[in-house]
Design a protein around this nucleic acid. Structure first.
Length: 483
DNA sequence: TTTTGAGTTGTTCGA
DNA sequence: GTCGAACAACTCAAA
């Protein structure tokens, strides 16, 4: 016997929120069965990284609580998504599933296959846009090609019809009469044990929709005003820190957009406020998704094929020193330790450590990408791939080849008083500002008074800056000769 | 089709 | 200390 009122299955993915959730709202007034599937078997998928697994656990907990407050369950299942959805439909008599789209290559393939299979069986799969301001197939150049340069992409996005206003939490969702068997979240073992390295994450983040909305409100209430300049100073809380919330869909870009525009209207936006700079960053997220959708190889291969021949010098010892924050360059080590400890790194510092790894150390950008993937709570396939290709110079819209960040100059410029370095590299905290950014140049007595012994307490530089820069430029020059 | 202006986030060198 | 130019050549996107 089939259920007299079979539910609509709402499949949550990277949209772990109840507000502005088109797939959920489209089921308003109906019986719904909310589902999350841990699908680690989709071909081509990048398995969720360690820090992101921690976040996912807490975000799912928050989502389940939000649903429970409305009398609804969250059914957790594990396995191939198509198989699990089919099973749930058989168990409940449901003939319709809703989801908000994902854009990772493995996900678009998998979802298209599910849709096709369901259509053959007379089942309905309805997908919605819950994660982007503009679908990645809508914005094209005059020649009908995907954009490969940010600025024209951004202009096109601004010229397009504005995003729809965000949706409220639907008020008429009805719980199903029967709830199918579900996994216990703890059985997924998303949280670290032995050792529990998540202490710094717990201190830093509040995953979940409420935490995301609070973070957005706090940011728009204060730091956004000075965002244009202050976002470059890692010792200051000048950025939004919304990346992970956006990745997991605890807040939608439409909600961010609407809230920022509202604030701009209230303040009589002049175009010089931090709001426009901030929205540009939301635009970068869109651009990265656009690139990933249209060039699905970018997580693995350089968009500029000439870089296939780049003479990288992969070396496990070098990579390990970078990962552990033992390069001897304080700003680099501070960033890598912030990442390890909190699952996040300030954007300015991401560029510095990225440039250092691929230029001065000549390690393949994919090695940095993989490390970020495992350690960032906001690990996002589109953003991560684009960021690393940009800093490596192999993306379509890349920095000029000669743009090699000098970690000492960057450090002096953006952490002039050393607040960031002293926080994350405490063994150098006693050094005066004049020497903090390059301790190997400090006189012996200055080092002694600060309690710093180079080579033991703190490493000597892993590479000479000038030599590393010259080596990188020489390596880049080989690409020109090859063609 | 051809032309033209431009391209997130920089560094170094020499005046 | 400050300032402007040089740093390759190429590709993109629109006119």
């Amino acid at each position: 016997m089939s259920d007299p009122s079979p539910p609509i299955i709402v499949w949550f993915r990277q949209d772990l929120r109840l507000s502005d959730n088109p797939a959920l709202s489209a089921a308003d007034g109906r019986t719904v069965l909310p589902v999350y599937i841990l699908d680690e078997e989709a071909p081509g998928a990048w398995g969720i990284g360690g820090a992101a697994r921690w976040w996912l656990h807490h975000s799912l907990t928050a989502l389940a609580e939000g649903l429970a407050a409305r009398g609804l369950p969250l059914v957790l299942r594990r396995g191939p998504a198509g198989r699990e959805l089919s099973a749930l439909m058989a168990e409940t008599g449901a003939d319709t599933v809703h989801w908000n789209r994902c854009y990772e290559p493995y996900a678009t393939k998998r979802d298209a296959a599910i849709k096709a299979e369901f259509a053959e069986r007379g089942l309905a799969a309805r997908s919605f846009n819950g994660s982007l301001l503009a679908e990645p197939w809508t914005l094209k150049t005059g020649a009908g090609q995907p954009y490969r340069v940010f600025t024209p992409f951004w202009k096109a996005l601004l010229a397009a019809p504005p995003p729809e206003p965000p949706l409220p939490v639907p008020g008429g969702l009805r719980p199903p009469a029967r709830v199918p068997a579900a996994d216990d979240l703890a059985s997924w073992r998303l949280l670290p044990t032995r050792p529990d390295w998540a202490g710094g994450l717990r201190e830093t983040w509040t995953p979940g929709e409420a935490g995301a909305q609070a973070r957005l409100a706090d940011f728009l209430d204060g730091p956004v005003a000075g965002y244009k300049t202050m976002r470059d100073f890692p010792g200051v809380e000048g950025t939004s820190r919304l990346a992970a919330h956006l990745h997991f869909g605890e807040v939608s870009p439409r909600q961010v957009w609407a809230a920022a525009r509202m604030l701009e209207a209230v303040e009589g936006g002049t175009g010089t406020s931090g709001i426009d700079s901030f929205l540009r960053e939301i635009g970068w997220r869109e651009f990265c998704y656009n690139l990933l959708y249209n060039y699905p190889d970018i997580p693995d291969r350089p968009l500029n094929p000439r870089f296939e021949a780049f003479p990288w010098t992969p070396d496990a010892t070098t990579l390990s020193a970078w990962q552990r924050g033992r390069t001897g360059y304080p700003i680099v080590d501070a960033g890598m330790r912030q990442l390890w400890r909190t699952g996040w790194m300030h954007n300015r510092v991401r560029m510095i450590v990225g440039s250092f790894l691929v230029k001065h150390l000549l390690q393949p950008w994919q090695a940095g990408e993989a490390w970020f993937w495992d350690t960032l709570v906001d690990a996002d396939l589109a953003n991560n791939a684009c960021g690393w290709q940009w800093i490596a110079g192999c993306g379509a819209d890349a920095a000029p080849y000669f743009r090699v960040f000098n970690p000492v100059l960057q450090s002096r410029k953006f952490d002039p008083e050393g607040a960031y370095i002293r926080r994350w590299v405490p063994e150098l905290a006693g050094l005066p500002d004049a020497w903090l950014h390059e301790p190997w140049t400090a006189p012996a007595d200055v080092l002694r008074r600060a309690g710093v012994t180079l080579g033991t307490v703190y490493p000597r530089p892993i590479v000479d800056l000038a030599a590393g820069r010259d080596r990188a430029l020489a390596a880049l020059a080989t690409l020109g000769e090859a063609s």
